[in-house]
Amino acid sequence: MKIIEIRDLVKIYDSEEIRVTAVDHIDLSFEEGEFTAVVGPSGSGKTTFLNLVGGLDRPTSGRVIIHGIDLWSLRPHEITDFRLHNIGFVFQAYNLLPVLTALENVEFIMHLQGWPKAERQRRAVELLEAVGLADRLHSRPSRLSGGQQQRVAVARALASRPRFILADEPTANLDSHSTENLLNIMERLNREEGITFIFSTHDARVVKKARRIITLEDGKVIADEKR
């Protein structure tokens, strides 16, 4: 089933000094259950593209349709709410709340969604177990390695039961062992739970794991291959 449809998407950064077309007329669609890598050199527009799809950055023109909803036709607070209930985010710099434990970080998003405490706690434990952090539930991010933090971030992204997860260079700050470990977890979640992942990377080892590879260059899609 098609979950994301992108039509003629354009993003132009127009500052006083320069004018950059970061995303240049992209047409794409994503199916449920995909495990897709967006690749390309630095500055090719990967982050911008994911931000447009994730409702974080407003396109200059074009449409992002998720489950039949034209994302950018919604009002700002509706978009925020849409993100909360439909999209999971994993960031390059993990971006956990430093004052919360791993468990609380995962719980927090369900708190925002208004889940009762017992239920969100049960699910948070479950998810942290799934990413191999059963023994670090009560550690704060500063006590976790980069790889562990990113796994908490994946658990957090899953916690809100999103329709898909967007991950912008999730392994860029990780060593090869942690990278491998994280990718295996993501792959397993995709295979066993049918979670849709769209992640960007410029790491060849990560690209290798993807089942679909979209290559960007200067904001244009220059290749879209499935394996």
Binding site: H77, T80, R83, L84, A93, L97, L112
Partner: peptide, 16 residues
């Protein structure tokens, strides 16, 4: 700033 950006990104409303 970055932390607040993350909270907004994951869907915490501006009111919250």
């Amino acid at each position: 700033r970055k932390e607040i950006g993350m909270l907004l990104a994951i869907g915490m409303s501006r009111l919250r």
